[in-house]
Design a protein around this nucleic acid. Structure first.
Length: 105
DNA sequence: ACCATGACTGCAA
DNA sequence: ATTGCAGCCATGG
């Protein structure tokens, strides 16, 4: 695993419950504002059942995005449940209000 | 070193 | 609101 992944994981680990960060935001924090896509790639490598709060990362529109596989749907459902269990409220559009839940380091 | 692969993003129709 | 698409980038083969 590359250094970039480790940095990303380190940042994600700091997101407090009930809050979220975007892929692009994390990319900027670790040094490359344009590596948002690679951030998603890094999260894909996160083991399930770990302590890393991967569910607290959403896209720039406040939507949940996951891998495009069979598991994708399950992941999305799980992510939403986990966020809601932390108090994050989803709008009718299926998005969350970033102005309310996004944390800025 | 080269190439394909996406849990991204912003912009244009 | 949707769709399409061209940039962008760290990995892995």
């Amino acid at each position: 695993m590359g250094d970039f992944f480790k940095k990303v994981h380190r940042i994600v680990a700091m997101i407090p419950p009930g809050a979220v960060m975007t892929y692009g935001q994390i990319a900027a924090i670790v040094g490359n504002p344009r590596a948002s896509r690679a951030v998603g790639y890094a999260l894909r490598a996160v083991p399930d059942g770990g302590e890393l709060p991967w569910h607290r990362v959403v896209n720039s529109k406040g939507e949940i995005s996951t891998r495009r596989t069979m598991q994708g749907d399950d992941d999305r459902f799980l992510q939403r449940v986990l966020l809601e269990s932390e108090g994050v409220l989803f709008m009718e559009s299926g998005r969350i209000d970033l102005r309310k839940y996004q944390v800025h380091f």
